[in-house]
Nucleic acid binder design. Structure first.
Lengths: 165, 165
DNA sequence: TATTGTTATACTCTATAACTATA
DNA sequence: TATAGTTATAGAGTATAACAATA
C-alpha cells in the first residue's frame, strides 16, 4: 500500500486492495457489462423481430395493462424515452388499434391513454409467446443460476436505473 | 406434486417444486430480464450520446485494437449484426479516418480492415472517458456486489450469446 | 409563465433483397 | 456454384428544437 494513503473504510470490503487495482477492476467490469448489454440487446431483438409489435411497443402495452391507464408524459418517463418518442410509439399503437387516446377528464393539456380490447387481448395472449426464446435459454440453466440472475437483475436495476416516482 | 408426474432429476435442483411453478418462475425472470435490457440500454446510450463515436462503432475499434486486423464478415459475426450493417459502420469509421480498408493479400473477395493511427489513438485514449458514467455507478456499490455482477455477466453471456468460433 | 403534448427535422441502428466481384 | 462484400430500400428507434394548447 502506498504511504500516505489513509484507510477508507466502507470502500474496501475485506481485502486491503489498493485503490488503483480496485479502479482497474471496476473499469474491466464496466467494459464487460457494456458489451454484454450491447450484444444481448441485438440478439434479443433478432429473436423478437417477427412479433406483432416491437419490444418497446409491447412494454407500453404491458404497463397499460397493469396500470389501467396513463398519459404520454408518464409513459415516456417510465420507459426512459423522450416525449416525442412516446408520441411516435403511441401513434403506431393507435393506428394498429391497440390503444385509445382520449381527452383527459381533469387537465385539458394531458391525454388519457388506455388499452383497447384488442390491445388487452394482445398483451395477455402475447406474453406467453413473446419471451419464448429467452425462456428457452433460462430453461437450460440450473435453478441456482437463475436465482443468481434474479439477484443480479435486481442489483443492476438499482445500480443503473434511476428510481421513478 | 400432481400424481403421475415422474421425477425429472437434473431439472429440479434441491426443491421438489412442481414444473408449473418452475415455469412461472422462469417466465417472470424472463420478463424482468427483458425489461432491464431494454431500459438499461436506453439509459446507457443516453449517457454516451455525446461521445465522438457511438457504442457500436467503439466496439469495432476496440476489437480491432485487440485483434490487430479483421474483415467485414468476421466483424459482423463478432458483433452480431448483419453484413450490411457492418458495411455502414465501417463506412462511417473510414470517413472519420479511424479505419483503413485495403485489399486482402490472399483472397480478393475479402477486405482487410485495420485501425489507422488516429483510430488506435481514439480507442486507447477513449477507453477511460468512455465508460465514465457506468464506472461511477459501479463505484457506488460494494466489492461483493461487483463480484456478483461479474459472475452474473459471465453467466448471462454463456446463456444468451451463442459462442463465436 | 410553466406544463403537456405534438410536429419537424435529422441521425443511428437494423434487416432483407438484389447486385458485383472473386474463388 | 458458392462466398464476401456492397448497394438499395425500408422501417424502427432515438434526440433536440420549435410549436400549439392549456393551466
Amino acid at each position: 500500500m502506498s504511504p500516505g494513503e489513509p484507510e477508507r473504510p466502507g470502500r474496501q470490503e475485506h481485502t486491503a486492495q489498493p485503490d488503483q487495482a480496485e479502479q482497474a477492476e471496476i473499469a474491466e467490469l464496466a467494459v464487460e457489462l457494456q458489451r454484454l448489454l450491447l450484444v444481448s440487446s441485438r440478439i434479443l431483438r433478432s429473436h423478437t423481430a417477427s412479433q406483432a409489435v416491437s419490444a418497446s411497443q409491447f412494454s407500453v402495452l404491458a404497463h397499460l395493462d397493469r396500470a389501467g391507464e396513463s398519459t404520454p408524459g408518464a409513459l415516456a418517463d417510465f420507459e426512459h424515452v423522450s416525449p416525442p418518442v412516446m408520441t411516435r410509439v403511441l401513434g403506431r399503437l393507435g393506428r394498429a388499434g391497440l390503444v385509445d387516446r382520449t381527452a383527459h377528464p381533469e387537465d385539458g393539456r394531458q391525454v388519457r391513454v388506455t388499452l383497447t380490447a384488442a390491445g388487452r387481448e394482445l398483451v395477455r395472449a402475447g406474453r406467453a409467446e413473446r419471451d419464448a426464446w429467452l425462456r428457452s435459454r433460462l430453461d437450460g440453466i440450473s435453478a441456482a443460476e437463475r436465482e443468481s440472475l434474479r439477484e443480479a437483475t435486481a442489483l443492476l436495476r438499482r445500480t443503473l436505473v434511476p428510481p421513478r416516482d
